[in-house]
Amino acid sequence: MEHGAKSRYEIPVLIAVVTLTLVIYVARHAEWFGYLQLSAGLSLILMLLVAGSLIWILIRTLDGNPAGRRMVFLYVAVAVVLPLSMQLTQKIEVTPEVNQLYRGLQALPHGAKVLATFDYDPGSAAELQPMAETFFKYAFDRGFKVIIMGLWPQGPAQANMALTKVLSEERYKVKSLRYGVDYVNLGFQSGNEFVIQRMGGEFKSMFPTDYNGTPYDSLPIIRNVKNFSNIDYSFNLSAGYPGTKEWVLVGVDQFGFKMGAGNTAVQTTGMYPYLRSGQLIGILGGMSGAAEFEEITKYRGKGTKFMLSQSFSHVVVVVFIIIGNVAYIMFERGRATEKKKKA
């Protein structure tokens, strides 16, 4: 890492930041003011300020002072933080793959049995948790019977978090959904794709009890669920291995159930082959997938809210790529040709 002129500024800046944080923190907890919410006008002014400073960086670059990586870091942080307290909304266009997934869910009858598999951990929760919440909302409104399980140790715990959140909403409280009747959490089972393989025979062999230790057969929702042939739809949320790929290769290919998936943005590219070949009926990719899913199901939540941070920081990255190329074309390319001449 580069070492600029530090120590002279570092300590005062640190103290200033710490003091400011402390004051805001104490003030917030003593309830001197409400939540931080910037009005639309103020938000626009702030955005323009950021844009202006980016232009200034571009000018400095043209003067021969390219920005270092820490400058990039700073702008990413600003671009993510600012929109969190802004009151702007953004129009969300639904892509075909999300639409397909939604159509698949829509086609299911009331009371359909849906297997929701949670293959991620808190690390990827930012992307997948909003999908999980939207999915539960939709499933409960449509009266689906949801069977939850996980191939990652923390998956079922993540499912429980989403469930608790959704079920605490007034709209679902009045439905008085019952554990074991309307939904069940089978918990985690180790063994990766082999768990899927064995579930093809009998779910019970892999999950003799549910997450809480209740025997499989004493749960009405799954008492009659032998294996995948009793499942109408499978919804997989995954962040890596084992995940959607294994569910497709071992599950869908061999046992032929219908499956839709929500993936982290990174994983999504690798899933397109399965989408095209029809092994997956639809896919939600990353935060925008989550936001689109919220849009099409009309449950606007976290995904929609966070899209502003996303878009803003995206623009910042794009601008920095432009700045980087300007700097490269202006200086380094010239230098490279000079070298060639000398040689």
Binding site: E202, N224, V225, K226, S229, N230, D232
Partner: peptide, 13 residues
Amino acid sequence: AELPAGANKFTDE
């Protein structure tokens, strides 16, 4: 096994 309406096959494994 319990199957939805329209089903016409099943494999007992």
